[in-house]
Each structure stands twice: as C-alpha cells, then as structure tokens.
C-alpha cells in the first residue's frame, strides 16, 4: 500500500512538472487576430501547415529557431522534436504545398514580428515582455 501511495505521489509530482512546463510558453498573436482562444488541435494545425486560418481568418505562424521555449512548445502542442517537426514542414515545401514559416532568434524577434504583421501568431516564454501583442488562451 505504501508503494502504491508513493507511486501516486510520484505521478502527481510529475504532473505538476508537466503542467508547469506547458505553462512556461504562451501563444501570442497580432492584435488584429479576432480569436482570443485557440484549441490545441487548431494550434497544431496552424503550426504544422494543415491549416492557414484561425476562426475563419488567415494566420501566419512564426517559429523560434531553437531554445527552451521552442522545445517546450513542440513538446506540449505539436508532439514532435525539432528535427521531425522541421522535416514535416520541408515535406510540405518539397511537395509544393507550403512555404516554410519564418524562424527567428529569440522571443523579442517573435514579439516584434507578431506585433507588426497582420495575422501573425507565435509563441514565447511566459516571462518575456510581450507588449503590443495579444495572448491567446490555449484550450
């Protein structure tokens, strides 16, 4: 019984870490994007090239080139590592179905791009400044 209790405690502890990991990334959008929340599936569709719209309006995803926020975003919302994720995009590019989303260095560059481009949607660390953009709630 003690072992079982210990296992539950471990799972609960792990869950807290998972939730915290997800909470470290926020999804931001240009203030012109009408949606204020997005489902996890819709977010995945936009960031994997399966969809180019959110709530009926065109959106343009922007990616971080690397870093903790990038890895956490892929893990939490896409379910792939960076290599597999970019291979998926390149597959779309080489079959003529899409152009690769812009990738930038650092949260500030994401915020800058999202703030100044209609329909832009990106992700950054929760702790990074994000004036001039709106934060989307991920359902």
């Amino acid at each position: 019984m003690k072992k079982l209790l210990f296992a539950f405690q471990l799972i609960a502890l792990a869950s807290i870490f998972v939730v915290q990991a997800k909470a470290q990334v926020i999804v931001i959008a240009n203030p012109g994007v009408k949606a204020s929340e997005v489902s996890k599936n819709d977010l995945k569709d936009v960031f994997t090239g399966a969809s180019t719209t959110l709530g009926g309006a065109s959106v343009v995803p922007i990616l971080l080139k690397a870093g903790t926020a990038h890895e956490e975003f892929l893990q939490a919302y896409i379910g792939k590592n960076d290599t597999a994720y970019r291979a998926g995009w390149r597959s779309l590019v080489f079959s003529g179905q899409a152009t690769m989303p812009k990738s930038v260095d650092g949260d500030a560059a994401v915020v800058e791009f999202v703030a100044h481009n209609n329909g832009a949607i990106g992700y950054i660390s929760k702790s990074s400044p994000h004036d001039g953009v709106k934060v989307l709630t991920v359902r």
Binding site: A87, S91, F94
Partner: peptide
Amino acid sequence: KPWLGFRAGKVKTVLGLFTDSQDMDFA
C-alpha cells in the same frame, strides 16, 4: 478560402498517402 484553393502549372499528383512526398526520404 480554407475550403477552396487552386493550383496551376506542373503540380504534384495527390494519390494515396505518399505519392507527392515519396522523394522526401528525410521524412
């Protein structure tokens, strides 16, 4: 529109899961 698009020129043929992406060995 999301439900309507057009492609013209020389276009990869969609046939099953992988015809249009069969050369993408990396994927």
